[in-house]
Amino acid sequence: MARNDSHTGAARAAGLQADAELMARIAEGDSAAIAALMERALPRVLGLARRMLGDPVEAEDVAQETFERTWRVADRWRPGEARIETWMSRIAINLCHDRLRRRRETPVASPPERADAAPRSDNVIAAGQASARVIEALSELPERQRTAIELCHFQEMGNIEAADMLDISVEALESLLARGRRKLRELLAAEAPELIGDLAAPAQSEG
């Protein structure tokens, strides 16, 4: 186990160092480095924003702003605790939170909740059918359930970190997650049964 931990630690340190070198090249305007980061991080950041916001146009704006902030810090990037993608995900989550808060404060101007009622952009057309259906189902969840699933499933945060971010208890987080996933299963079973099969009903206790 100690050897595994040591190996994992060494791999992580190497990853952080590689990130620092990549950012140094980006700061110098190296087009290959810029393309490499875009290839590895843009689908992830755009996916996060699409799931969080539901609206494809707003998601593109968040992805663009996240990258612009990344470009701005490239010359100051040092190997730290977080990989580039993790750092970018945090930026994107905060940007999405800001937009969601503004939606709540100005409900008249809020976009439609269902993704299919929003203007379509080329990223949606390019997205796979399964992906589009899952994103659509996610957009129908209450915001806090959707955010809980985003943080815990997609961003792989632990329960304490995610609960802190949502400013709720760990128990409340677990409840949000369970309700969100149960609702999602029902939605997918109704709208995309090929994705979820005959597993629509939540597990029933046998004892």
Partner: peptide
């Protein structure tokens, strides 16, 4: 099913 929505490919304009 969730993992199918992990990444969204960006269009050329973005």
């Amino acid at each position: 099913a969730l993992d199918a929505a992990r990444d969204v490919q960006a269009g050329d304009l973005l």
